Structures are given as structure tokens and as C-alpha cells.
Simulated assay, not measured.
Amino acid sequence: MENSIKEIARVLNNKDAKDIVILDVADVSNLTSYFIIATANSEPHMEALRDAVLEFLEKNNLPVIYYDKGRGYDWMVVDGGHFIVHLFSEKGRDFYSLEGLWLNAKRYSTEELLKG
């Protein structure tokens, strides 16, 4: 797995995101290579997580294809081309069940991601 993907997981972890998971969808999707999924505990927290990811991408000269700029969402994305960060409220994560839609993808847990 690419270091930038692990670093994004670390950025989210450092901002107290919950239940961080990375799905390697390269073999099961033509959309992207990785989904980085995390849960926020409030709307301001979700915005802070999004902004932290955007700041990391900018500092590391990584592309941003699209990101949600609005407020009041249960699901926000930051599209970096070869990865998409999905930030959910607890309600949104349960409702959309993104991980359930990609059961064939290799899954990395927070513990695996933050080693080393």
C-alpha cells in the first residue's frame, strides 16, 4: 500500500476520526484504487477531518479532483484520483454501508494501518 494512503489514515487518526478503514478496491472497481473510510462525531468534526486531509494533500503536492464544500452532510468525500476519502456521520455510515457494498475488496483496519 502506498505511503500517502497510510499517511492520510494517520492524519484522520490524529484528528480523532473513528473506525478508520482502507479498502483496496483496485481489483474490484475501475473508479479508484483505494477507499479511505472514517466516521466523524459531529458536523464540525467532519469538516475538520476534510480540511486536515486537504491540507495534507496540498503540503504533499497530491492532486484533489473534487471535495464536498457544503455543510450538513452525512457523507463527505475528498477525491484524490487514485483514492477517495469517505467521511461519514455515524448515521450516514450505518445507512450507506459502503464497506458492505465492497465485500470483495481487501480491507485494512486502523491497527494494520498505523503500524510502524
Rank of each mutant, 00 (worst) to 15 (best):
Asp68Phe: 00
Asp68Tyr: 06
Gly80Ile: 01
Gly72Thr: 05
Ile22Ser: 04
Val77Tyr: 08
Ser89Asp: 00
Leu54Gly: 01
Tyr34Asn: 13
Lys91Phe: 11
Gly100Glu: 03
Gly92His: 10
Asn61Glu: 15
Ala26Leu: 13
Asp27Trp: 03
Lys18Val: 05
Ser109Met: 07
Asp68Asn: 14
Lys18Pro: 01
Asp94Arg: 14
Glu111Ala: 12
Pro63Ser: 08
Met46Thr: 07
Ser33Thr: 11
Lys6His: 03
Asp74Ala: 08
Asn13Val: 00
Ile36Cys: 05
Leu103Ile: 15
Val85His: 00
Arg10Phe: 04
Leu101Met: 15
Met1Val: 07
Asn3Gly: 06
Ile22Gln: 07
Asn14Tyr: 01
Leu62His: 04
Asn13Met: 00
Val25Tyr: 10
Leu113Trp: 05
Leu23Glu: 10
Asp94Glu: 15
Leu62Phe: 02
His45Val: 07
Asp74Arg: 12
Gly70Leu: 00
Val28Gly: 03
His45Leu: 11
Glu2Tyr: 07
Ser97Phe: 12
Leu114Gln: 02
Asn13Tyr: 14
Glu47Lys: 15
Asp79Asn: 13
Phe95Lys: 02
Thr110Lys: 12
Leu101Glu: 08
Lys69Pro: 03
Leu114Asp: 03
Ser4Val: 11
Ala52Thr: 02
Arg107Gln: 15
His45Pro: 00
Leu54Trp: 02
Glu47Leu: 15
Phe35Gln: 09
Glu99Val: 08
Ser42Lys: 05
Glu90Asn: 07
